[in-house]
Amino acid sequence: MGVYAITGARIGIGAACAKMLEEQGHKVIKISRGEGADIRADLSKKEDRQRAVKEIEEMTPDGLDGFVANSGVGPTEPGDLILRLNYFGAKDMIEDLFPLLQKKNGVVLAVSSNSANLPGLNTELVDMLCDDDDEEAAAAYGKTLEGANKQEAYQASKFGLAKWVRRNSAFYVTKGVRMNAIAPGATWTNLMEVGFDDDVFGDSMQSFPVPSHYNDGKVLSPEDVANTMIFLLSPESVGICGAVIYTDGGTDAFLRTERF
């Protein structure tokens, strides 16, 4: 059985993925800010990322079979926090765990979002993330965003993460580490629950189309998304590399028919 590390494993999609891996008999190292984590860390902070990587190294000296960069917050949170956690918290952890993953020809899965490709993407902010790799500048910009504009930070963080995965997946796999991203759509997690009640984002989040749930008005469950994650972490998905897999009940196909 394998050893996997998951960030944001306490609730939502991360918790569902961790539970499924454990049910398959794997050991799962859960990284989270909250109680019950194997490693408690706030991955929006560089020093916590470095400490978390060190602790994972101590726990798994023989290497990691998989790493899921799942931690993230939604657009209701401050813009600087969104960018630090969703993009840099994920990207830095993947890069720093790369040697440990290489030891076991491991798999990386980054959790992006299907909102990454919706209209309104701030490409300058994405460049600040992916080209400049400047966390402080991005965070300073994020701090200036208020109200509905915080969606800019969320969208750029998720687009940037998927772009980073696509840019680096060929390099990683030539070194033995396969990497993909998943782009969940509307999923009933804490992030969605908070968003539904939000004065600014509530209406738009509640009206987001999910074709596969047209008849029941529901959204996806964390388990719906985690099932895809389990597949992408498994050897059965060996042919998939550098992909951004939409697990959104058909939303992306519906909204962006011509782009795939």
Binding site: R167, N168, A170, F171, T174, K175
Partner: peptide
């Protein structure tokens, strides 16, 4: 085009 790594250059 964005390529990381010499193996990518070759490919």
């Amino acid at each position: 085009i964005y390529i990381r790594g010499k193996a990518g250059i070759y490919m």
